[in-house]
Design a protein around this nucleic acid. Structure first.
Length: 448
RNA sequence: CGGAGUAUGGCGCAGUCUGGUAGCGCACCUGGUUUGGGUCCAGGGGGUCGCAAGUUCGAAUCUUGCUACUCCGACCA
């Protein structure tokens, strides 16, 4: 992408409404635009990041055996009457009436709808387990949306649903998602800690929240430091095997949010020197809730004995739009965002310091095109702005590898590579730079 | 939903107390200049002062009502 052709409305000043760093930076970098309270447009580089996050989630969902579908945002109230939640959900649900005066709603979640899909097709235990997920916009009419896309009313959610013939099998499905989530957050460069959680309005008896530690987090978390050193399941983890060892290992240490925190339990379970009390951001939440929806909605399958049984279900949520903000909270400095390469709006940037200088322009373009040819997502700053503005913009949007090309350097046979994360500046010959940067990016993107 | 605020050009703000025909910085446009960490000079365009009603010769400014948005709290992916 050439910057001269990119819609990148960066702001020099901080919009006054933005209180937390991720919100400020997303507005300043032109990633999002508020349209009304808790409702945002996603502008080009914001959308790029969001899509890259979605890609990682998809890869790890699919690896774990889940099937991607896409359900609508608008749902019929009748489905929710079947489960009883139409009355229970309260004002957080946005209720709509269509022209025929039918009660509709903007989906805050999709348990009812996916259960409806399931019951329409699946009749035998032989087709289980089954896991269906989608990545779709949700609406929850929060009383007080805030912090930009961290707590918005409209938000993107990956919500997945598992179906099993019995509770034991459902626990295996739960473990697959548990492992998949550990991998997803790890690949996004985040240290997410699964914490025992309340099941809330979704219901059920087994639930974990995945929390990343960040000073600006909204909840207080209490855990054992040693949880930070646990290994993440590798890319070749076999999802058809028993995954208990992974789940047991990760749930062995005490880890709770303020919702269910009890001082006595914390002190009993965690030795003083291992206690870690921090703020955290919830980026994922998984539930096992048995037959809560399948029973009232008649989602049943025939078991081996020919008798019909209601399926055991679980649901698994990750908020990609919130993750974008959480990633910024976890990775930034005074100059702007510091994206992990895997979700950066661009993997590399080429700054041509003086576009009017023939050598600089030609060399910049050549390097840019060579990188493109290697499938690297690269931004060429071919604008006539001043150098200072170009540097500031690259740092603000958090481009991990920045190749700086100007007449003065070229005269000495030099270009500079700046590594955003470390601030390192490496001087190279122009014909070395593509390989150097391509290698770095390849390393960063290596499947872990 | 309780409490506290804000609303003036794309963004950040002054002007409101004390009514008199709207201003600054950034951004934008033109010309020149400059080009390795947010150049400099000159000129220029852009505003129903959130909306409505009222008071007044005259309202961004005073009064009343409304709306939107933000912050703190309760609630939440």
């Amino acid at each position: 992408m050439r910057k001269s052709n990119l819609f990148l409305p960066v702001l020099k000043e901080n919009p006054k409404e933005a209180e937390i760093i991720s919100h400020r930076l997303m507005l300043r970098a032109g990633m999002i635009r508020q349209q009304s309270a808790g409702i945002y447009s996603w502008l080009p580089i914001g959308l790029k990041v969001l899509n890259k996050i979605n890609d990682i989630i998809r890869q790890e969902q699919n690896r774990a055996g889940a099937n991607e579908i896409l359900m609508p945002t608008i749902q019929s109230a009748d489905l929710w009457r079947e489960s009883g939640r139409y009355e229970d959900y309260g004002k957080e649900m946005l209720r709509i009436e269509d022209r025929h005066e039918r009660d509709m709603l903007f989906g805050p979640t999709n348990e009812e709808m996916v259960t409806d899909i399931f019951r329409g097709y699946v009749k035998s235990y032989k087709d289980l387990p089954l896991n269906l997920y989608h990545i779709q916009w949700k609406f929850r009419d929060e009383v007080r949306p805030r912090f930009g896309v961290m707590r918005s009313r409209e938000f993107l959610m990956k919500d997945g649903y598992s179906f099993d013939v019995d509770a034991d099998s459902a626990r295996n499905s739960y473990r697959r998602m548990f492992v998949s989530y550990l991998r997803t957050f790890k690949r996004l460069g985040l240290q997410a800690i699964p914490m025992a959680a309340d099941t809330g309005p979704i219901g059920g008896d087994l639930s974990h929240e995945f929390i990343i530690l960040a000073r600006t987090g909204e909840s207080e978390v209490f855990t054992d430091k040693r949880i930070l050193d646990l290994p993440t399941p590798p890319s070749d983890v076999d999802y058809s095997e028993d995954l208990s060892q992974w789940v047991d290992q990760w749930t062995a240490y005490h880890a709770v949010t303020d919702e269910i925190y009890e001082e006595a339990a914390f002190h009993e379970n965690v030795e003083e020197e291992q206690r870690l009390q921090e703020r955290g951001i919830e980026v994922g939440h998984i539930f096992y809730f048995g037959t809560k929806y399948s029973e009232p909605m008649g989602a049943k399958v025939a078991g081996p004995d020919g008798k019909e049984v209601p399926v055991h279900m679980g649901s698994y949520g990750i908020g990609p739009s919130r993750l974008a903000a959480a990633l910024i909270e976890a990775n930034h400095d005074d100059d702007g965002m510091i994206w992990p390469t895997i979700v950066a709006p661009f993997e590399a940037g080429v700054i041509c310091l003086n576009i009017k200088d023939d050598d600089a322009r030609q060399k910049s373009t050549e390097i840019y095109e060579t990188l493109l040819g290697q499938n690297i997502d690269v931004l060429l700053d071919d604008t006539s702005e001043r150098p200072g503005g170009k540097f500031a913009a690259m740092d603000l949007i958090g481009v991990p590898y920045q190749i700086i090309i100007g007449p003065k350097g070229l005269a000495k046979g030099e270009v500079e590579v700046k590594i955003r994360k470390t601030g390192e500046k490496i001087i190279l010959a122009p014909d070395e730079v593509v390989n150097f940067v391509a290698d770095k990016i390849q390393q960063d993107l290596q499947l872990i």
